Simulated assay, not measured.
Amino acid sequence: MAAILSTLDTADLLACCASGRWADAVVAKRPFDDLDDLVAASTEALAVLDWPDVLEAVEAHPRLGEPADGEDRESAWSRQEQLAAASPDEALRADLVEGNRRYEERFGHVFLICATGLPVEAVLAALRHRLGNDDETERAVVRDELAKIVELRLGKLVDSDV
């Protein structure tokens, strides 16, 4: 693992978070002793991103309910992360589509949530709740959700032996 952690490059990291500024900041902290060290560098870099850098990362995420169709690592991870939130129930899917539309209209970007392990009902409840947030509160929530997703993906990256 130590060899992997010392050879991570920007391209590897961009699969975890599509912010170029974040990836550059994390690469600059190499080498990492372990996953915890890598996650700490990530957390530090995420905390100081300007909002446009956060949006750069958010814009790489597909809408919930519309899984990524690419063959790259990031698309595969995204499909896996959305799996639990998928539903064969037409009404729930329609609610998710409508909620996504309202959220994007309200905040100007896709609804981002760490959906890993969450059923669609929990995702919808969070979406509906967050529609009531003011911009500042929602930006803080988005940063938190992005950090959760990035941490999960860093673990997958390290486990995959890059």
Rank of each mutant, 00 (worst) to 15 (best):
W77P: 00
D9V: 05
L131A: 08
V97L: 15
A45T: 07
G155M: 05
I4T: 11
A2F: 06
R101P: 03
S160Y: 12
V27H: 06
C16S: 14
R63M: 07
I149D: 00
A125Y: 13
C114M: 00
L157V: 11
G155Y: 04
D159M: 06
T7W: 05
A23D: 00
R139M: 13
A94Q: 15
E90S: 15
G132Y: 05
E66G: 01
I149F: 02
A86Q: 15
D89Y: 06
E138Q: 08
R143H: 03
R21H: 13
Q82W: 02
R21M: 10
L5E: 04
G20D: 10
C17Y: 01
E151C: 03
D134I: 10
E121T: 12
V54Y: 00
V97E: 15
R102V: 14
R106P: 00
A18T: 00
L35F: 02
V158M: 06
W51F: 12
D24I: 01
R128Q: 15
A41L: 09
E145L: 06
N133I: 04
D9M: 07
A57K: 02
R128H: 13
R63F: 02
D50F: 07
E121I: 11
W77C: 04
D24S: 14
A125W: 13
L157Q: 09
D95Q: 15
E44I: 05
